[in-house]
Simulated assay, not measured.
Amino acid sequence: MTPSTRAPAPCSVLLAGRGARPIESHRPNGSTALEFPRIDLSPLRRRVEVSVLVRDPRHRVLLVQPAFRDDMLLPSGGVHPGESVAAAAARLLVESLHIHRPITTVRACDQAGHNFDTGAVEVLTVVVDGGVMTSAEASALSLPVGTEQLTALDWAPLDQLDRYVLPFTEQRIRAAHTAARLLVRLPWPYLGEDVEELVAA
């Protein structure tokens, strides 16, 4: 097979139309042509993350600040291979804040595509509902002693979210909070079984 007719690598994607810049290709006959590069997506570079929406009786939202960021987020983390979203959410709350919350309902999903300029991978973030803490629980909550993962914890009023989070994070939180207020539950079965049934088992 000649170079001009060589098939692309398996799972490769032509970057034309995705903001990629064409490159100048020199052909054996001495001519040049502009071609869009291909990127090998084998294995696919994407990950699934879960964020937990926890509220208090005053409708404030629990936010944390990871040590590697200047802004705040919902308690969040990656979903391990083979792990359900609900199990991942429960695990990260225990690991990062030492709290146990029932995780049964998906309130929103947010997708961030692969950034071909920075190399950032594609991320699907699933926002689950961690319920409403009592006033006493919310007041007593603090960062675990000796934690290195987080540097701050706060309860943010909805009308002040922009003081704590980035714009896209604010929209994500508002969408999930509205869904929780309206009791909108997104079906998110695991192997066809309802998450509530799996958690209750």
Score class of each variant (00 low, 15 high):
2 T>N: 12
4 S>R: 12
7 A>Q: 11
8 P>N: 05
11 C>E: 15
12 S>L: 00
15 L>P: 00
16 A>N: 10
21 R>V: 15
22 P>V: 03
23 I>V: 13
23 I>D: 06
23 I>W: 06
31 S>G: 01
32 T>Y: 01
37 P>R: 00
37 P>N: 02
39 I>G: 08
39 I>T: 09
43 P>R: 11
43 P>Y: 11
45 R>V: 14
46 R>W: 14
48 V>D: 11
49 E>L: 13
50 V>Q: 03
52 V>F: 06
53 L>V: 06
57 P>M: 00
58 R>K: 13
62 L>S: 02
62 L>Y: 03
63 L>Q: 01
65 Q>W: 04
65 Q>G: 01
69 R>L: 14
72 M>V: 04
73 L>S: 07
73 L>H: 13
74 L>Q: 01
75 P>Y: 05
75 P>W: 04
76 S>N: 14
77 G>W: 03
80 H>V: 13
80 H>Q: 14
81 P>A: 09
84 S>V: 03
87 A>R: 10
88 A>K: 07
88 A>D: 07
90 A>T: 09
90 A>Y: 04
93 L>E: 06
96 S>C: 11
100 H>T: 13
100 H>G: 10
102 P>N: 06
102 P>W: 05
106 V>K: 03
107 R>G: 02
107 R>V: 05
114 H>Q: 13
116 F>I: 15
118 T>P: 03
119 G>D: 08
120 A>H: 09
120 A>G: 09
121 V>A: 13
122 E>P: 07
123 V>Y: 08
132 V>A: 11
134 T>C: 07
135 S>H: 08
137 E>M: 10
139 S>V: 01
144 P>R: 00
145 V>M: 08
146 G>Y: 05
150 L>D: 00
151 T>R: 15
151 T>P: 05
154 D>R: 15
154 D>G: 12
156 A>G: 05
163 R>D: 10
164 Y>W: 14
165 V>C: 06
165 V>M: 03
168 F>V: 11
171 Q>F: 07
172 R>P: 00
177 H>W: 11
178 T>H: 12
184 V>G: 04
185 R>I: 10
193 E>I: 11
194 D>W: 08
196 E>W: 12
196 E>R: 15
199 V>R: 13
199 V>I: 13
199 V>N: 02
201 A>R: 15
